[in-house]
Simulated assay, not measured.
Amino acid sequence: MSMHSAAMGATTLITVAPTGAESAKSDVPALPVTLDELVQTAKECEAAGAAVIHVHIRDADARPTLDPSRLRDTVQALRESTNLIIQLSTGGAVTDPYKDRLAVLDAQPDMCSLTCGTVNFGADVFMNPWPFMVELYERTQAMEIVPEFELFDLGHIAALHRLLDKYGLPSGGHVHCDLVMGVPGGMPGDTRTLTTAVEVLPPDSTWSATGIGRTSVPVLFAALSAGGHLRVGMEDTITFAKGQPATSNAQLVERATQAATLAQRPPMSSTDARLLLGIAG
């Protein structure tokens, strides 16, 4: 474990989630929705300090899609133009059927998200029943894709323990989690909740945290102070500050880099992140 603790202690893994499935391009002009926009965003965010990109894609009308050929093209384009670790969302939009969400893995990303339970998401329900979690997890193991366990609530952490107890460690042997905080219906984005969640994570796991909307800055500071990693991006917040829309994803990554550097844990390189996460060369 020394390699993990060394990498984790000195540096911060920054993940950028640039697009998501919730915001409309018409409402958020800076949102990257085309492949060209996504590649440009990825390059800017890598230069700003990101090591992982969490990817949702859009169709020709800028609507969320899980189209298999578009996903493959996206993974290939990001691989060719950056050294970022490519993490595809298996959440898609709340309306996507399970079979389409499982098929995301066929695009052969380095990582994928694996949400550990159902959560109320504003007025919608983001469905992740146990049999779906198990099927997705076993597929990641068979295909050697590293999952990032998305945790929106404390019950999701209990489900993660259950998954690991029954089905063993993920591909690469290392457990990495992301605390998604401040979703209306999930756990709140505050320090007290973050420390409670971190205390019950699996031993030897690493974790990042992201705050949705106005919780983004408090969660960023809470995560850094607790020794965690960061996820930022326009999937999670479309404002930089009150009354100030984010101008780009790079702007949000730059702030995370500045905060991590102030905390004396500057951004981790994608090479070190691959070692930490157990991603094969």
Rank of each mutant, 00 (worst) to 15 (best):
A77G: 07
S89T: 11
G122Q: 12
N128V: 06
D106L: 09
P129K: 08
V94K: 09
V119Q: 03
D100I: 07
T115D: 15
T118Q: 02
A93E: 02
D106N: 14
G92Y: 00
A93Q: 07
P97C: 05
G91L: 08
S89R: 01
L84W: 11
P129H: 14
F121N: 07
G92T: 00
P129C: 08
T115G: 02
E80S: 13
G92A: 01
L105W: 09
N120K: 12
S113I: 01
L114Q: 02
T82M: 10
M111V: 06
L84H: 06
L114I: 02
L88P: 04
L114R: 04
S89W: 02
F132Q: 14
P129E: 15
I85E: 00
N128D: 02
L78S: 04
P109K: 09
T118V: 08
A107H: 04
L78E: 08
R101Y: 00
A107Q: 05
P129I: 07
N83W: 11
V94C: 11
M133C: 12
S113L: 06
T118P: 00
Q87K: 08
L84A: 09
G92I: 02
L88I: 04
P97T: 04
C116Y: 04
Q108L: 15
A123G: 10
G91A: 13
C116A: 12
D106F: 00
P109E: 06
C112W: 00
M111N: 08
S89C: 01
G117Q: 05
G117V: 09
K99V: 07
F126L: 15
P129S: 10
I85S: 03
M127D: 14
G92V: 02
D100P: 02
P109T: 06
W130Q: 09
V94E: 10
D106A: 15
L102N: 02
L78I: 02
L102H: 03
G122R: 03
N83D: 15
E80Q: 13
F132D: 15
E80Y: 07
M111A: 11
R101E: 05
G122W: 10
L102K: 00
L105K: 03
L88V: 03
G117K: 03
D106K: 11
N128Y: 00
M111D: 05
C112T: 10
G91H: 06
C116E: 10
A103F: 07
Q108A: 15
F132W: 13
R101N: 05
N83F: 12
C116V: 05
D106M: 03
P109G: 06
N120E: 06
V104Y: 06
Q87S: 09
G92E: 01
P131S: 15
M133P: 00
R79H: 05
T95I: 14
N128A: 06
M127K: 12
